[in-house]
Simulated assay, not measured.
Amino acid sequence: MRANRPWIDATVEDAIKRARSRLGQGPGLSRCETCDAEIPQARRRAVPGVRLCVDCQEAEDRAQGAAAGYNRRGSKDSQLR
Rank of each mutant, 00 (worst) to 15 (best):
N71M: 03
I39K: 02
A10Q: 12
C53D: 05
C56H: 01
R81H: 06
G24Q: 09
R20F: 02
A37T: 01
A42P: 01
R45I: 11
I16L: 13
V12K: 13
V50A: 08
R43M: 02
R51S: 14
Q41M: 05
W7G: 15
A59I: 03
C32I: 08
A59H: 08
I8Y: 11
R5D: 04
D55C: 02
V47D: 03
I39Q: 02
E60Y: 02
W7F: 15
R72Q: 10
Q41N: 04
D77G: 14
R51G: 05
D9P: 00
E58L: 11
T34W: 07
Q41T: 10
M1Q: 08
R18D: 12
E38H: 07
S30R: 09
R31D: 03
P27W: 01
A59F: 00
T11I: 03
L23S: 09
A3K: 08
T34H: 15
R2F: 11
Q79T: 08
I39P: 06
L52A: 05
Q79P: 00
D55S: 14
R43A: 05
E38Y: 00
R62F: 06
S75E: 05
D9A: 14
A66R: 15
S78N: 15
P48F: 02
R51N: 09
A63D: 10
P40W: 08
D55A: 15
G28V: 04
K17V: 15
R45F: 02
R43G: 04
E60I: 01
D9H: 07
Q64A: 10
R31W: 00
L52Y: 09
D77Q: 15
I8E: 13
E38P: 00
C32E: 07
A10P: 00
R20H: 05
P48G: 02
D14G: 14
G28A: 09
A15I: 03
M1C: 06
C35P: 07
K76H: 11
Q25W: 07
W7Q: 11
P48I: 08
M1A: 13
V50L: 04
R43C: 03
D36K: 11
D55M: 03
A66Q: 14
G26C: 01
R62D: 12
A66H: 07
R72H: 11
V50C: 11
G24D: 06
Q57L: 06
G74C: 03
T11K: 14
A68S: 14
C53G: 01
G69T: 10
S30C: 02
D77C: 00
P48L: 05
R31F: 10
R22C: 06
E58M: 10
V50T: 07
A63E: 15
P48N: 04
A3N: 12
E60K: 13
N4F: 11
S75L: 10
N71G: 05
S75K: 08
N71I: 03
S78I: 01
Q79R: 14
R44T: 05
R72N: 14
V12D: 13
G26H: 04
S75Q: 08
R2C: 03
A19Q: 13
G26I: 01
D9I: 09
L29E: 14
A68N: 09
I39A: 02
L52K: 13
V54C: 09
A15P: 03
R20Q: 11
E13H: 07
I16P: 01
G69N: 10
I16C: 02
L80D: 10
R62W: 01
K17I: 12
I39N: 00
N4T: 15
I16N: 04
Q64E: 12
T34A: 15
R72A: 15
R81Q: 09
V12L: 15
A42M: 10
G49R: 07
